[in-house]
Structure formats: structure tokens, C-alpha cells
């Protein structure tokens, strides 16, 4: 049963003003429960606009958003319920932290769900663990955290609601490689442990190649490609055309194939390419 479904979703910012802009056009897709989806697109292609429809923060100009078969915009109550089911981590985490202490901030979602005190406490601790935040930070103001810790806090605040769908808007932008890998690892672990659907927005093909089961490519407000990474990366020219490119490993694999080497399709991560090259060498008896 599909968890999230959108039907001909369109959104226009500033309708009727000179600043009118068609951010997304006619987006229809289905995301089944438990899938790990990567959303990629050039800057301004409408990714953030699209995902803000999934929990009803933005209402579509036309089209529908269904969660578990229910149109979330059919009543205010349903829309609010959808926010507990579809947790959204914003593009700029510093906009998302507003309480005096980290603990209170993480407890904000569960408190709105009217849970008991013990339940809230349990969820806050669990969420902090998943996001890799130590409990010593609980009494600190979120503003005193480092950039990476703020990211983690923003993610934990959403995880604390135990949403069935976790949507993350560029959670690793502006972090160093170690911090980026850490956070991706945390997200992957959460996906595995909770069975939640994860939708990850990113600019980095390499990042998504590592982690996503399905890639959706946005360009100028529309979906131009949708499929498993190994299929999407075959269209490297098209991807370059819209300014995205393919992961480094995939590029190398394509070049090697052009040289006549027998590299199997679907080598788009560094480790799978390494294995392919090693097995070729073994066949050739080099080592």
C-alpha cells in the first residue's frame, strides 16, 4: 500500500503579483512505505517547495496529496495529523530550533502529540541517540550548538515524533566530509531500525548513490527521471544537460567501458567499482 501519493501537484508563488513563479508543475508520484528515496535537482528546481506539500505546510494550487489514501488537505484536522506522520527537517536547521534548551526543543513535537511525560522523555532520548547527540547537550541553548550539532538537533526534533515518513532537505549541506558521512550513517541506521520511509533531498549525486534505493530527478519544477540509481546514472548526458552530472565512480565506470573493459552496469559507488576492477585484474591474472 503506497504511503504517499501526489496527483498532478502544482504550486505558484505570489500568484497575481509581478513576482509570480511556477515552482512545481504537475507532479504525480507514489512512494511506498519503507522506501529510501533520493530527491535531486538543480538549485531552484522546486525540491523544497515539493516536500513542503507532503506535510501540508504549503497547499497546492491544484492537485492532491494523499497519505495512506486520505487527502491531507481535505480538512485542517487531517492536515495537522499529517504533520505528525510526515516529519520534515528544513533546509536551514537554524530556522527550526526555537526553544530555550535543546531538551525542550526535542520535546516540542511529542508534547504537541499530547503524550505522557515519561513517553516524551523516552522519545527525546531515543531521538538524540539516533541523531548522534550526547545527552550532556540537553541543557544547552540550541543557538550555542555548532553547525553540525544544530543539524543533528533539527533531525532529532523530527525523529522524536516517530514519523512514518522522514523528509530531510539537504541535511548535510555545508558540513565537512566526516560530519556528512556521520549524519548519513545516522539516517541510514534510523531507516533500518524504524522501517520509515525516508526522502532525502540533496545536491550530491555521490551522496545519494551511496544511500538511496530510488532517485527522483527534478528540473524546473517537473520530474525528469525516476528510478533506481543504476538506471538513472545511465543517462549521464541528460543529467549533465540539466547541470547535475553523475557520481565520480559512475563516470569512471563509463569511461572504462568505453575503453572496452568489462565493467558490469550499475557500478556507481566507489566500493562496487573497486570490486569490479579487482575482479577484472584477478581474471587477467595480474594479482
Amino acid at each position: 500500500m503506497p504511503t504517499i501519493k501526489t496527483e498532478a501537484l502544482s504550486h505558484i508563488y505570489g500568484q497575481g503579483t509581478p513576482f509570480e513563479s511556477h515552482a512545481i508543475n504537475n507532479i504525480s508520484l507514489e512512494i511506498p512505505q519503507g522506501q529510501f528515496v533520493g530527491l535531486i535537482g538543480h538549485t531552484g528546481s522546486g525540491k523544497s517547495t515539493f516536500i513542503q506539500h507532503l506535510n501540508g505546510l504549503l497547499q497546492p494550487e491544484s492537485g492532491h496529496v494523499y497519505f495512506d489514501g486520505v487527502d491531507i488537505n481535505s480538512s485542517k484536522q487531517l492536515r495537522r495529523n499529517a504533520r505528525f506522520q510526515v516529519g520534515l527537517v528544513f533546509q536551514y536547521p537554524e530556522h527550526q530550533l526555537f526553544e530555550e534548551t535543546l531538551y525542550k526543543d526535542l520535546a516540542f513535537g511529542p508534547r504537541n502529540m499530547k503524550l505522557s511525560k515519561d513517553e516524551i522523555d523516552e522519545r527525546v532520548r531515543e531521538a538524540a541517540r539516533f541523531a548522534g547527540l550526547s545527552e550532556e547537550l540537553f541543557s544547552k541553548s540550541p543557538l550555542e550548538l555548532s553547525g553540525g550539532q544544530k543539524r543533528r538537533a533539527a533531525i532529532a526534533g523530527v525523529i522524536a515524533m516517530r514519523p512514518q515518513v522522514l523528509v530531510l532537505d539537504e541535511p548535510t549541506a555545508g558540513l565537512d566530509p566526516a560530519g556528512r558521512n556521520d549524519i548519513l550513517e545516522n539516517i541510514r541506521a534510523y531507516h533500518k531500525a524504524s522501517g520509515a520511509t525516508v526522502i532525502l533531498v540533496s545536491h550530491s549525486m555521490d551522496e545519494l548513490a551511496q544511500i538511496a534505493q530510488r532517485l527522483i530527478v527534478f528540473d524546473e519544477g517537473s520530474i525528469v527521471m525516476d528510478g533506481p540509481p543504476e538506471k538513472v546514472f545511465l543517462h549521464s548526458e541528460k543529467l549533465c544537460e540539466i547541470g547535475l552530472g553523475v557520481p565520480l565512480a559512475s563516470e569512471i565506470a563509463l569511461e572504462l567501458q568505453k575503453l572496452g573493459l568489462n565493467i558490469p552496469e550499475g557500478c556507481y559507488t566507489v566500493s562496487s567499482l573497486r570490486d569490479a576492477i579487482l575482479s577484472l585484474r584477478r581474471e587477467a591474472g595480474v594479482c
Binding site: 485542517k76 495537522r80 504533520r83 527550526q96 526555537f98 530555550e100 513535537g109 504537541n112 515524533m161
Partner: peptide, 29 residues
């Protein structure tokens, strides 16, 4: 801030007027 709070279930839209007014308080700080 309103959006960030809404995304985590703060109630600005449903509920009684008093509840909605109360939801504004955590916005001011």
C-alpha cells in the same frame, strides 16, 4: 518560526481561539 513549529504539530489553525492564542506565545520568545 511559525512554519518550523507547524511542522512539528503546533496548532495555529484548529482548536479554540484561546488555544490558538496560546500557540502564539512560544512564537514570541
Amino acid at each position: 518560526i511559525i512554519n518550523a513549529q507547524k511542522a512539528r504539530g503546533a496548532d495555529f489553525e484548529t482548536g479554540k481561539l484561546l488555544d490558538r492564542a496560546k500557540a502564539l506565545l512560544p512564537l514570541l520568545v
